[in-house]
Design a binder for these strands. Structure first.
Length: 885
RNA sequence: GGGGGAGUGGCGAAAUCGGUAGACGCAUCGGACUUAAAAUCCGAAGGGUCGUGAGGCCCGUGUGGGUUCGAGUCCCACCUUCCCCA
């Protein structure tokens, strides 16, 4: 191996060397010839293949590292330069870990089921299978052209029957555990898309995809009981190393709140109205109640004289989204039902009748679908009471100095209970506890926890998704398909457009629907819904551990070795849904004994968004970037009309006509330049604009690297002469020190993924080494190439071989930082007077405070002349600050 | 409406702990090489100001306050902007 410290790795690399010898001898940097050659050599030698436990060449003594990208949905548009930013970041991490001797699991696949392929199919007639396959080909070609070190033997696509067989298998486990059930629920129905959509796929009453209008409709749907895992999903967030912001989003999404359920007797009916409240201590302030328009008791509660008005109101509410209904800023609406309830804690006969309203700001799906309203201490109730002129009764006195009812505002914080006979004078937490104790004692209420999280609507009336592995029997019962009968494959269909009546396309595959129950031989029907796009992505990280296993979703040995994902990188847009769903499935699989980790993703990192310049003319029309030119005055104009354009920075998107295709960048500058530029732009976690003008700088850097090693005026593959090697006890040569500084900064950059600073450090070294090339020792040059290789692997590999190495640099040992080479005898001492810089002088490293003060006093003698030094602040190793009068 | 991030040269950005603001690169300008150009190499460069010059001085990290010998960094208030959620 290269510099002789590492153990030989599993993959045979001799073919790399063979291929390398076929290279033409060129003296200037030609990435277009180097890069495809090495990509072919790496593929041929399978240098990125990662053996699994049980494989012949598996080395169990090495530690494991699993670094994963969020796999892409293979859209028809292909990749733009924003997609690979995270991929390049993880590739750099994977390459360094490999060089450090880890067994690195670094796979890639495709989230290939879902609506867009089907919409495209309906528009063009191309079968989703066909367009998805074609898109995958494009994605794979593009990903491979970027030199990403994936183990392509592990590639998966969620639409493969061999993959979704196990998605279905996991569903059957959910089914067995009672976590999957069918029920009639009001769901968003999109007439245009002919499907049900999840709450999160509908924005302002329109579909997220396509922006079509949607309405609420009750339909029988598959649901997953994610709420049963709410507490564990909440608690285990403490054990993962994720951005706090993402954890917070998940916590808020789950929305756990503690409170009480209370039964209010209804006047004139032998029924009571159950409400949920987080503030049982305010029950004596309840001056009215509200039920949701969908509340099951509404019909019974409503009196004859109010029936018409209530009916009309309910009808209107059905057309609104939850969002519109609960918007705080909106004027509250509602209708009186004609009925009253009673405070169950009030002494007999003392309680005022409490009017019951129906109002759409209460949702049927949250809590019990009914609330007691305490306008003095709840914003929405306060607002409602104002609109309808209802009583407002203060039952919590705010702490001293805080505004409350007396100042005309609604106080929602904690204070002291008043006007509440059983708990007058108690502080809010005690009053809550007292209220709950009283309710439980009298059997009219109890402490409860509710969640904002709802069960997961898990079915779609579409074709391009996983079929449900269940059989419906003539007696109305439903059983799951036996393991040995999986997968339930999608039937081939010519026409997969949704039916006009909204029934799913699979319902038309009559031969497929009508089957026999293999257990009983009786006729049975298949389910005609399919799973949503999220299903396949819930567990793909597990399949990567053991992608070809045909007897289990993931083999036990592989699962035990790979554990969970050490580093997961992707966009923040998946912070809630994908990550929550995947964590839910993982926990079910944990209970099932399939995995032995509680959490799937140990560390998570969100890459920033890539933006780009877009141009608008005076009319606001968007002008494609390639139809613009910048004048000498720096003003951007339209090439065609010469009109001045406004430059805006925005997310890369087709509609803004500012998409940059990586293929074009690679064709013009080469892969390594593309990789270096993407990382050099700024920290991986920040959003930043792509500036086509800046790319050349990264290319120039690589050319300087090339010339450091190859003499452009000679035919020799590499410069023959190197400077003297550093001796163990001699003085540390400047370039050795310089390289070590660069290495230290590169190491640092892996902490926060700010590879821009790593590349800046490598540039600084190259600049210095170019100036004093005759001093550059061979060992220093090799350390540099090793350090460069994760960032610019093709160039590093080429030069590594030109230096005479037969084995690939991708498996050469990562250089260990030599701290001793960083140490220096002197430092630059900063001299300040009253905090202002006045001199910089060289001082010996170990000098004590008084020596430093003397040196500084000398250096600042001019500024100090005639002034009295009141104090001297000495920071050893840094500065001296004189405080003068 | 709620939550989070970010505001530093013409542009992307850098600056472990509070201690030299602007590293590294882009664009720009000057010079060398060249018949010429490209490429490359060398150099200049935050703003202002004084000086023939070397160099000096003042201002400067969104705004206004505060803490400190010393603030891009810490605290308070505000403005702008992006993202996420509702």
């Amino acid at each position: 191996m290269g510099i002789g410290r590492g153990r030989p790795q599993a993959a045979s690399l001799c073919s790399c060397a063979r291929t390398a010898r076929r290279r033409p001898v060129t003296s200037s940097y030609h990435p277009e010839s180097i890069e495809p050659r090495w990509q072919a050599a790496w593929a041929e030698a399978r240098v990125y293949r990662t053996p699994n436990p049980g494989d012949e060449d598996f080395d169990p003594s090495r530690p494991k590292y699993y670094v994963l990208d969020m796999f892409p949905y293979p859209s028809g548009a292909g990749l733009h330069v924003g997609h690979p930013m995270g991929y390049i970041g993880t590739d750099i991490v994977a390459r360094k870990k490999r060089m450090e001797g880890y067994n690195v699991l670094h796979p890639m696949g495709y989230d290939a089921f879902g609506l867009p392929a089907e919409q495209y199919a309906i528009q063009t007639g191309t079968h989703p299978e066909v367009s998805t396959r074609a898109n995958i080909e494009t994605f794979r070609r593009q990903l491979q052209s970027i030199g990403l070190s994936y183990d392509w033997d592990r590639e998966i696509a969620t639409c493969d029957p061999e993959y979704y067989r196990w998605t279905q298998w996991i569903f059957t486990r959910l089914f067995d555990r009672g976590l999957a059930y069918q029920t009639e629920v009001p769901v968003w129905w999109c007439e245009e898309l002919k499907t049900v959509l999840a709450n999160e796929e509908v924005i302002n009453g329109r579909s997220e995809r396509g922006d079509h209008p949607c309405v609420r409709r009750p339909l029988k749907q598959w649901m997953l009981r994610i709420t049963a895992y709410a507490d564990r999903l909440l608690e285990d967030l403490d054990d993962v190393d994720w951005p706090e912001s993402v954890k917070r989003m998940q916590r808020e999404w789950i929305g756990r709140s503690e409170g009480a359920e209370i039964d209010f007797p209804i006047d004139g009916l032998d029924a009571s109205l159950r409400v949920f409240t987080t503030r049982p201590d305010t029950i004596f302030g309840a001056t009215f109640m509200v039920v949701a328009p969908e509340h099951p008791l509404l019909d019974e509660i409503t009196t004859e004289s109010n029936r018409e008005a209530v009916g009309a109101y309910v009808e209107e509410a059905a057309r609104k989204s939850d969002l519109e209904r609960t918007d705080l800023a909106r004027t509250k609406t509602g209708v009186f039902t004609g009925r009253y309830a009673r405070n169950p804690l009030a002494e007999e006969g003392t309680g005022e009748p409490i009017p019951i309203f129906v109002a759409d700001y209460v949702l049927a799906t949250y809590g019990t679908g009914a609330i007691m309203c305490v306008p003095a201490h709840d914003e929405r109730d306060f607002e409602f009471a104002r609109c309808f002129n209802l009583n407002v009764l203060e039952v919590v006195r705010p702490p001293e100095g805080t505004d409350g009812l007396e100042q005309g505002v609604c106080f929602t914080g904690e204070g002291t209970a008043v006007h509440s006979p059983p708990f007058d004078g108690l502080a809010t937490p005690e009053a809550k506890a007292r209220a709950i104790a009283l309710l439980e004692e009298r059997g009219i209420g109890k402490a409860t926890v509710t969640y904002r999280l709802r069960d997961w609507l898990f079915s779609r009336q579409r074709y391009w998704g996983e079929p449900f592995p269940v059989l419906h029997h003539p007696d109305g019962s439903t059983t799951r398909v036996r393991d040995e009968d999986l997968p339930v494959e999608l039937p081939p269909m010519e026409d997969f457009a949704p039916s006009e009546d909204g029934s799913p396309p699979l319902a038309r595959a009559q031969d497929w629907v009508h089957t026999t129950d293999p257990e009983t031989g009786e006729p049975a029907e298949r389910d005609t819904d399919t799973m949503p796009g999220w299903a396949g992505s819930c567990w793909y990280y597990l399949r990567f551990m053991d992608p070809h296993n045909d007897s289990a979703a993931v083999g036990e040995e592989a699962m035990r070795y790979w554990g969970n994902v050490d580093l997961y990188v992707g966009g923040v847009e998946h912070a809630v849904l994908h990550l929550l769903y995947a964590r839910f499935w993982h926990k079910v699989l944990y209970d099932e004994g399939v995995v032995n980790t509680k959490e799937p993703f140990q560390r998570m990192f969100n890459q920033g968004m890539l933006t780009a310049f877009a141009y608008r003319d005076a009319t606001g029309r968007l002008v494609p970037a390639d139809e613009t030119e910048e004048g000498e005055d720096g003003v951007v104009r339209s090439k065609e009309s010469g009109e001045e354009l406004e430059q805006v920075i925005a997310k890369m998107s087709k509609s803004l006509k500012n998409v940059v295709n990586p293929d074009d960048v690679i064709a013009e500058y080469g892969v390594d330049t593309f990789r270096v530029y993407e990382m050099f732009m700024g920290p991986l976690g920040e959003s930043k604009p792509w500036n086509p003008r800046d790319v050349a700088g990264s290319r120039r850097f690589l050319e300087r690297v090339w010339r450091l090693f190859v003499d452009p005026d000679s035919d020799a593959p590499v410069r023959a002469r190197f400077g003297p090697e550093p001796t163990p006890d001699g003085e540390v040569p400047e370039l050795v020190r310089e390289m070590e500084r660069a290495l230290a900064r590169v190491e640092d950059s892996f902490e926060h993924f700010n590879f821009n600073t790593a590349i800046a450090a490598l540039m600084t070294f190259v600049n210095e080494a170019t100036k004093r090339r005759e001093e550059l020792a061979r060992s220093t040059a090799e350390r540099f190439l090793l350090t460069l290789s994760p960032f610019a692997p093709h160039l590093a590999e080429e030069l590594w071989h030109r230096l005479g190495h037969a084995d690939s640099i991708t498996r050469a040992p990562w250089p260990a930082l030599e701290k001793a080479w960083l140490e220096e005898d002197t430092f630059e001492l900063v001299v300040q007077v009253n905090g202002k810089l006045r001199a910089r002088i060289s001082a010996p490293k170990g000098a004590d405070r008084s020596t430093l003060e003397e040196l500084a006093r000398d250096a600042a003698s001019e500024q100090l002349a005639g002034r009295s030094v009141r104090r001297a602040v000495v920071v050893p190793g840094r500065l001296v600050n004189f405080v003068v009068a």
